[in-house]
């Protein structure tokens, strides 16, 4: 009803935008996927203090709009903060967008775009 099967049947990977530790851990779990050369594409982006917001945004767009094989996009909450406007205006069901905590930034439910929506709906 809401989404045709074609919208998600090929989505089999997870993607991640995060700091080095989060990415390392998630890659260890085995989510990393690098498509073969040429134009090999990674499904993860390591963000450090030097990474520009535009680069994060670009990766965000790439993972959410361009690539059709990504089912879930994980993003560190403190990185989501940097592109908050994008994250908040993202409403599509696929890929699912999850804000995850990182080592140095514990999880804050107040900032989560989905949880905020939940709160709004129930008028809390």
């Amino acid at each position: 009803m809401a989404a045709p099967a074609s919208a998600y049947k090929d989505r089999q990977f997870l993607a991640v935008i995060g700091d080095e530790d989060s990415v390392t851990g998630l890659l260890l779990a085995g989510i990393g996927h690098v498509t073969p050369a040429p134009d090999s594409q990674k499904n993860f982006l390591v963000v450090d203090s030097k990474t520009e917001a535009s680069a994060i945004e670009e990766a965000f767009v790439r993972f959410t709009e361009e690539r059709k094989d990504i089912g879930i996009l994980l993003i560190n909450q403190h990185i989501a903060e940097k592109i908050r406007h994008r994250v908040d205006s993202y409403t599509a069901a696929f890929p699912a967008l999850l804000e995850i905590p990182s080592k140095d930034h514990p999880y804050d439910p107040e900032k989560d775009s989905v949880l905020r929506r939940v709160r709004r709906l129930f008028g809390e």
């Binding site: 089999q12 390392t24 890659l27 085995g30 990393g32 996927h33 690098v34 990674k42 390591v46 089912g71």
Partner: peptide, 21 residues
Amino acid sequence: DIGYQVQESAKSARFRVRTKQ
């Protein structure tokens, strides 16, 4: 630090998802 090595040796996803209805 194993971060870099892990990032570079990632090739094919071992952990995947599939969707069901």
